[in-house]
Design a protein around this nucleic acid. Structure first.
Length: 422
RNA sequence: GGAGAAUUGGCAGAGUGGUCGAAUGUACCGGUCUUGAAAACCGGCGUACCGCAAGGUACCGGGGGUUCGAAUCCCUCAUUCUCCGCCA
């Protein structure tokens, strides 16, 4: 959520920034400002009436204490009118509040100055490309064929137990995945991130805190009888650890990591592009999250990008980095770098990580602040990224490391898998 | 799941209808004293919103209600503790 203060003072900058998303903010912002003005006026009168009521009540108290019953009762009689206009104003203020908030929820984050204007993924900028496309002396198989051939993943079983999009990993397939999780967690740990094991189900307040609600309500699995949501990413519980927190000073740099399953309804996406591991309802991910001083978030983003690069290099995968254009950048993010790995077998790029800075967009909702040098509360910045999402990495390893006889395991994983080939 | 008790400022803890944003202790910050420290003493010490300011308003687990007036009474939800039940 943007800060109302910022909307009041930097309206034009926000409208201009949001044009990079092809989002026309001016009608919403104008409405917010009109309502905000009414809100302030109503609030001022409400408070002056409240002040008057408080005065009278205090007087009545004194009169009763002095035994002046009649005067007290007379004073009581006077309050009726004040009370009803207080109630009316209160209703009005609450209504305005609600309207303003719901409009504020509709405004996405303002893109960073580096972000280019654009509508969709076609306008994303390719920033870097590393590694080489693997060369095969044969026609490479897509991972779902390999998974079947070597008995690594059973999609049918998942359908039987749950439904489409919930695969069962078996034998070396399961072990490969577990090895990757350990590899990612240990890499994160050596980069200074503290490992956390967090709930996989969150309450409504947490969903609002990181911005999944109300924007992506339909994307999350929801248990109505408990009013709880299955997490769509570890970002939600990890970041919400710091909801309603006031850090005591400005010397902080909080780095969290955790492995969680992620649950996504992915309503409406079917067909060939969701084949195999490409898009699932449940998948595992190691997430990295940072809470930073605003002056440090640019540096933090670079560090996170370098961390993810390091992982992909160690796995020896051919990858590229995109800076998303305005239209493709997520609702809450100010800037996002996507990492894609090339699948030669499928002849397409698969997104395996997304690293974003949110500036104060999440922390306004989270109420996550620190005391700055002037002893004033100031909003922190948050960032997060996948490091890494498992299934597509598994898919790419299977595809890119396939030989005619089997699948080689990247060397970095040997100590975690306990085997060197499948 | 059932019964009971509780939830107050960083922590501890008083307050059961009126001048309570809240005693007191402790922690913390500043000062006096001291060669330095401790002790003692003095002062300060929550958050948010509106306002140029003076100031005002709100907040005693969350939400709602009663009342001229609520930390205090009522309803409801959450959490914690104790006992019972169930259980990996």
């Amino acid at each position: 959520m943007l800060e109302i203060q910022r909307i009041r003072t930097n309206k034009d900058e926000i409208i201009e920034g949001l044009q990079k998303r092809h989002f026309d903010a001016s009608p919403i912002i104008d409405e917010i400002l009109t309502l905000d003005e009414q809100w302030r006026a109503s609030k001022a009168s409400l408070e002056s009436i409240a002040a008057e009521m408080n005065q009278i009540s205090k007087q009545i108290g004194i009169l009763f204490k002095e035994g002046k019953q009649e005067e007290a009762n007379a004073a009581k009689a006077k309050t009726g009118e004040l009370k009803s206009s207080e109630a009316d104003l209160k209703t009005k203020v609450d209504e305005l509040d609600e309207k303003i908030t719901s409009l504020m929820y509709q405004l996405p984050n303002v893109p960073n100055s580096l972000v280019k204007q654009g509508r969709n993924e076609e306008d994303n900028e390719i920033i870097e490309e590393h590694g080489k496309e693997p060369v095969y002396g044969f026609t490479p198989h897509p991972h779902w064929e390999l998974a079947d051939k070597y008995d690594l993943i059973d999609f049918e079983l998942g359908v039987k137990i749950t439904g489409a999009g919930f695969p069962v990993y078996k034998g070396k397939g399961a072990k490969l995945q577990r090895a990757l999780i350990n590899f990612f967690l240990e890499e994160a740990e050596s980069a200074g991130y503290t490992e956390h094991q967090v709930p996989h189900v969150v309450n409504e307040a947490s969903g609002y805190g990181t911005g999944q609600l109300p924007d992506k309500e339909g994307q999350m699995y929801y248990s109505e009888s408990d009013d709880l949501y299955l997490i769509p990413t570890g970002e939600v519980p990890l970041t919400n650890i710091y909801r309603n927190v006031l850090l005591p000073d400005e010397n902080f740099s909080i780095k969290l990591t955790g492995h969680t399953p992620c649950f996504r309804r992915e309503a409406g996406s079917y067909g060939a592009h969701v084949r195999g591991l490409n898009r699932l309802h449940q998948f595992d991910k190691v997430e990295i999250v940072r809470i930073e001083h605003p002056n440090n978030s640019e540096k933090a983003l670079t560090e996170m990008v370098n961390h993810v690069k390091g992982l992909l290099e160690k796995l020896g995968l051919h990858y590229r980095i995109l800076r998303l254009c305005g239209g493709d950048t997520g609702f809450a993010a100010a800037m996002t770098y996507d990492f894609e790995v090339y699948s030669a077998a499928q002849k397409k790029w698969l997104e395996v990580s997304s690293v974003s800075r949110f500036d104060t967009f999440q922390t306004t909702r989270l109420k996550l602040r620190f005391k700055n040098a002037n002893k004033k509360s100031q909003l922190c910045h948050t960032l997060n990224g996948s490091a890494l999402a498992l299934p597509r990495i598994v898919a790419c390893i299977l595809e890119n490391y396939q030989t005619e006889k089997g699948i080689e395991i990247p060397e970095a994983l040997h100590k975690y898998t306990g085997f060197t080939e499948i």
